[in-house]
């Protein structure tokens, strides 16, 4: 028959072990949440920059023109879209280039379905683990467009932007 006089010692030992494990777990988990919270700043900066770039690409240079963005989407010019977007995005005032990368897709409505079409594929720097931000812009396409065919349509351009 097992002697049961050491029960409290055992309980104490188990409790101490649990406390230690729990402490380590909580500290590690909450600390990682904290660093995630810190990424809000780069996120905010990237999101603002990306929205600015899309808005400026959607602003025609002279009155009454169609904007660059509408031209790129309507003409399916993904190369041009990519290079123009990154030129705006990576420019800094001291002339050096920042290291931002992007991919883009266009969301459109087909009857009652919402469909998404890849517009610019991500480049080699994309691993899936980047903390990318998503910026969007409404674009109204003239009739005879690659999305939905006939008639004026509105599509949503979505750009995923990350720092390599």
């Amino acid at each position: 028959m097992v002697n049961d006089s050491g029960q409290l010692y055992t309980m104490e030992g188990v409790a101490a072990g649990i406390i230690m494990l729990l402490t380590v777990y909580i500290v590690i988990s909450t600390t990682s949440i904290y660093t995630a919270g810190d990424t809000h700043i780069p996120d905010m900066q990237l999101e603002q920059l990306g929205s600015d770039v899309l808005a400026m690409m959607d602003t025609p240079d002279t009155n009454g023109d169609t904007s660059e963005l509408v031209g790129f989407i309507n003409g399916n010019e993904s190369e041009h879209f990519n290079s123009t977007f990154l030129t705006y995005c990576n420019a800094t005032t001291d002339g050096t280039l920042d290291d931002l990368h992007m991919s883009a897709s266009v969301t459109y409505r087909d009857g009652n379905d919402i469909r998404e079409r890849q517009f610019v594929a991500p480049d080699d720097s994309w691993t899936g683990r980047e903390s990318a931000v998503r910026v969007t812009r409404w674009v109204q396409l003239p009739s005879a467009n690659p999305y939905g065919g006939v008639g004026v349509r509105a599509v949503l351009v979505e750009v995923l932007l990350w720092r390599a």
Binding site: T107, R109, N112, I114, V152, R153, A154, V155, L156, E158
Partner: peptide
């Protein structure tokens, strides 16, 4: 266009 904007807004 109106349907596009309303539907895509909700979805995306």
């Amino acid at each position: 266009v109106q349907k596009d904007i309303i539907a895509i807004s909700l979805e995306r």
